[in-house]
């Protein structure tokens, strides 16, 4: 059988591998996707109050941005290892680590987006009797949306790719297969898992671009008019 041959010959591309291990590939993909989604979602939920805090009290902006910048000099390998004593060997370690990393991008972009809201728009909304929450929700956030979504897209793509490092504690989604394949020099396993991972990142980026278009219909109208 040609299919069996490619496994025996340890070829890079092997249909037989995909057929016989499809369940494993699906399980790893599901783990990969939920770890990524949970991390980015937690990152967005944390980044918004942090950005608002940094904007409200300018004195807080420097420490907030400083801490999130120092975070990215801590290697993922070390950060995951450091969180193990806190959570034990569990997916929480990877999700927490990835959330912290996503903050470096998200807080910066959220703050840039909020800073770019024209003061006139704020004044107009206040004049129309908008309270602070309604102002934020109906005026500032929609106007900050391009920068916010750019941040979410970068953070998501980076998180998809960084999830693989979670394999050092066994919660790396497709990274688990990459690491397993490394230990047994199993080419098809390494390549298949890597390719799926890249495809996930690119598809997620395109989906979020679609969401961004839906959320900012005026941007397209302006471009068409200009």
């Amino acid at each position: 059988m040609a299919g069996q041959d490619c496994l025996a010959a340890n070829e890079w591309i092997c249909g037989e591998f995909v057929r016989t291990r499809s369940q494993e590939l699906v399980d790893a993909s599901v783990e990969h996707l939920w770890i990524t989604a949970a991390s980015v979602a937690a990152g967005v939920l944390l980044a918004l109050p942090l950005a608002l805090l940094a904007r409200r009290w300018r004195a807080a902006a420097t420490p907030v941005l400083g801490v999130t910048t120092v975070l990215y000099t801590i290697p993922s390998l070390a950060l995951f290892s450091l969180l193990v004593p806190v959570f034990g060997i569990s997916a929480s370690v990877v999700v927490t680590g990835l959330t912290l990393y996503s903050l470096t991008i998200l807080v910066r972009n959220f703050l840039a987006g909020l800073d770019a809201v024209p003061e006139d728009a704020r004044e107009a909304a206040r004049g129309m009797g908008y309270g602070p929450i309604r102002l934020l929700w109906e005026v500032e956030l929609p106007l900050a949306m391009p920068a916010v979504m750019a941040g979410v897209r970068i953070a998501t793509v980076a998180t998809v790719s960084l999830t693989t490092v979670g394999s050092i504690i066994g919660y790396g989604g497709l990274g688990n297969l990459i690491k397993e394949g490394m230990q047994s020099f199993f080419k098809a396993e390494v390549l298949t898992a890597s390719v799926i991972c890249v495809v996930f990142a690119l598809v997620a980026d395109l989906l979020l671009l679609g969401v961004q278009r839906l959320l900012t219909p005026w941007a397209r109208a302006a471009k068409a008019a200009g």
Partner: peptide, 19 residues
């Protein structure tokens, strides 16, 4: 740069090690 971000360095490293 966007495409580069999508490719895990860990995967590249392991691919090269295995290759």
């Amino acid at each position: 740069s966007n495409v580069g971000r999508a490719v895990p360095t860990f995967a590249i490293l392991v691919l090269l090690v295995v290759a």
